[in-house]
């Protein structure tokens, strides 16, 4: 197996990395670029903990080869805050206890942001279905939904 060089953009910054042909984007983000915010909860696209955006589209980074990232724009949880200024979703998750252990939180924030970017005023049901691919075992989802809705309301009024 010979390694592949990939040039891509992560959270707005141009980066190059070398990866194996069978390496997932998740492994490259975590292992090659040190961006360990995205987590591997299953490796099969069933838990959403590895959620990132690729060219604006929400995907599981475990279900994408790193090589496919050539020329793409990748967005990860590390890029949501602007410096020390938290995104309203991040602040809302803190204010509404939308996390307990926090391991699903990066994926949920990336996914929720992708939702609100498309639909600033979702119903609870729309939030629940959009986030159905993000498993959380701690919260029972209740406070997550409240946190997303509160952030959405705040972003609408901003």
């Amino acid at each position: 197996m010979s390694a592949i060089t990939v040039s891509t953009t992560v959270n707005g910054d141009a980066v190059d990395f070398i990866c194996q042909p069978d390496e997932s984007l998740l492994d490259a983000l975590r292992g090659r670029l040190g961006l360990t915010g995205a987590k591997e909860g299953c490796g099969t696209g069933d838990c959403g903990a590895c959620s990132v955006t690729v060219n604006g589209r929400l995907v599981c980074s475990c279900l994408m080869l790193a090589a496919e990232a050539e020329g793409a724009e990748i967005g990860t949880v590390e890029g949501i805050a602007k410096g020390n200024a938290l995104h309203p979703l991040q602040q809302s998750f803190l204010d509404h206890a939308g996390l307990q252990c926090g391991v699903c939180t990066p994926g949920i924030l990336v996914a929720a942001k992708a939702l609100l970017d498309r639909n600033p005023d979702p119903t609870d049901e729309e939030v629940r279905y959009w986030l159905a691919g993000n498993l959380c075992r701690c919260t029972g989802y209740d406070k997550i939904i409240r946190a997303v809705q509160s952030a959405a309301a705040q972003m609408r009024s901003a």
Partner: peptide, 9 residues
């Protein structure tokens, strides 16, 4: 098919 994430691909 699958989640929102899976739908993206």
């Amino acid at each position: 098919i699958g989640s929102t994430q899976v739908q993206g691909r």
